[in-house]
């Protein structure tokens, strides 16, 4: 009877400390490497270029304007500014949002992240809307060069 009791006690005192240490290490690691802007990047396929000159700059203040494709017809399904989705025709609204952001964050850079299959006629009004907000420079989002070690193309 006494022996049984003893065995039970030993089972409960499993030492989790080192496991906890490792788990915390991993959590902190992933906390630091995670991009919290991922919600601003809906799933789309940016242009894949020949000998891409695209560069990566970390830690800049950016507003991503996404043009989400409608299957592969070349039409835009929606335009997403930051976290906000607007219908493809509402360019005045886009101008308002961009100029508002530009006033709040003067150093903000505008990234234009359009799907590779979008027709230029659907990208051009978006560019005009950004210009109308008083922005002269934008960044075009494209894949890095295939030889770039940082490139790990999504499947």
């Amino acid at each position: 009877m006494a022996k049984k009791h003893e065995v039970e006690k030993q089972e409960v005192s499993l030492n989790l400390t080192s496991m906890m240490d490792i788990v915390f290490q991993l959590i902190i690691f992933f906390l630091l490497v995670t991009n919290f802007t991922s919600a601003e990047l809906p799933e789309l396929e940016p242009p894949d270029l020949e000998h891409s000159e695209a560069i990566e700059i970390d830690g800049r203040d950016k507003l991503v304007i996404n043009i989400i494709p409608d299957s592969s017809t070349g039409m835009a399904k929606a335009v997403q500014v930051g976290m906000q989705k607007i219908p493809p025709g509402a360019y005045n609204q886009l101008t308002d949002i961009v100029s508002q952001v530009k006033t709040d964050r003067p150093d903000v850079e505008i990234d234009l992240r359009a799907d590779a299959s979008i027709n230029y006629e659907n990208v051009q009004p978006v560019m005009n809307a950004i210009t109308a907000a008083g922005v002269a420079r934008i960044n075009l989002v494209a894949y890095l060069d295939a030889s770039n070690p940082k490139r790990e193309k999504r499947e």
Partner: peptide, 19 residues
């Protein structure tokens, strides 16, 4: 983690406007 790995930017000027 690592959602948009492999994407970069090309700085560009915008087409005709008041900018």
């Amino acid at each position: 983690a690592s959602f948009a790995v492999g994407e970069g930017i090309l700085p560009a000027e915008l087409p005709t406007g008041q900018g």
